Amino acid sequence: MNDDHTNVRDFFGARAARWDARFPDDGPAYEAAVAEMGLRPGDRVLDAGCGTGRALAPLRSAVTDTGVVLGADLAPAMLEAAVGARRDGAGRLLLADVTALPLRSASLDAVFAAGLVAHLPDPGGNLRELGRVVRPGGVLALFHPIGRSALAARQGRALTPEDLRAEHNLRPLLASSGWTMTSYADEESRFLALAVRTD
């Protein structure tokens, strides 16, 4: 495991036990984001970097019992917190690195990724890996329960034009990684970029 992965795992691992208590009101934002993905009963979806599993129940509701919901995270403590919150009943949890997924190519219909992009060591390559496991025409949702400005303020940093999630950066990054952005919302109360897997 390289230093980037170790740092991310350790950062989230140290915060896992208190994560849900720090952000107790995010549930409706997750539900609304999942609703915009257009998932159908029977779809196969991955929550990439699932953390404590807050998206698993909305994803399960969208794909119903006939679908498949997977949650993958690099931090064992986050997956333990998901089990502790009894969210593992909504999907199968995988201790896995989203930059090298243990999944077959084109085996999924969609990927949901909350707060993931900023933590990817090689955003272009890593988005290609997410694309590898999604069928052509499948959907990617890059989500955060607050917008870029609100997140920067929370973290005590300035919002810069180099921000990876800025539309002028994210759109070409997705395009070069096999995705076509179909919508982009950066509001105080949420960030959601949707993209479709191209051939």
Rank of each mutant, 00 (worst) to 15 (best):
G125V: 10
T99K: 04
V98H: 00
T99C: 13
T180V: 07
D186C: 10
R135T: 12
P161I: 15
P76W: 02
L101M: 13
R104D: 15
A55T: 07
P172Q: 08
L108S: 09
L140T: 02
S149K: 11
P102E: 06
T160H: 10
D65F: 10
L70I: 06
L174T: 07
A62K: 05
R157M: 13
S176K: 12
A72P: 14
P136L: 04
G71C: 04
D163V: 06
R92Y: 06
S176I: 04
T99M: 05
A118K: 02
P121F: 02
D65H: 14
D186W: 04
D186A: 10
E129P: 00
S183T: 13
T66G: 12
T66R: 15
T66F: 13
A85V: 00
L159N: 02
A110P: 01
A57V: 06
V111F: 05
A113F: 01
L56R: 03
A118V: 09
L174F: 08
A158D: 11
P136Y: 05
V69C: 05
L103M: 09
G91F: 04
A118T: 09
A55E: 02
T182H: 07
L140D: 02
L142C: 11
L170M: 10
L94M: 14
L94W: 15
P172E: 06
T99V: 09
D122R: 14
T180K: 10
I146K: 08
F112C: 06
F143E: 00
R135V: 10
A57E: 15
L79E: 11
G137T: 12
H119P: 00
D186R: 08
A62N: 09
G115L: 02
D65K: 13
G124I: 10
L103A: 05
L173E: 11
V98D: 00
V68Q: 12
E162W: 06
L79M: 10
A150N: 14
G67H: 05
H144A: 15
A77P: 02
D97V: 03
L130N: 01
S176N: 14
A110C: 08
L93F: 01
D65V: 13
A77H: 06
A106D: 15
R104Y: 07
L59H: 04
A106V: 07
A141S: 08
N126S: 14
Q155K: 13
A82Q: 00
S177M: 00
V63S: 02
Q155E: 15
T99I: 07
L130K: 00
G91L: 05
R104N: 14
L130A: 06
S149G: 08
E80R: 15
G67N: 03
G124P: 03
P161S: 13
G115F: 04
G156K: 13
L127Y: 10
V133M: 03
A82L: 00
G89I: 08
R87L: 11
G147P: 01
P58F: 05
M78D: 06
G115C: 03
P102R: 08
H119V: 10
V139W: 04
G115E: 03
G131W: 00
G178D: 14
P102F: 07
D73I: 09
A62Y: 04
S105M: 07
H168L: 09
A150Y: 14
R128N: 02
V63D: 01
H144T: 11
S176M: 12
A153I: 13
L95F: 07
A100K: 14
L59G: 00
G124K: 05
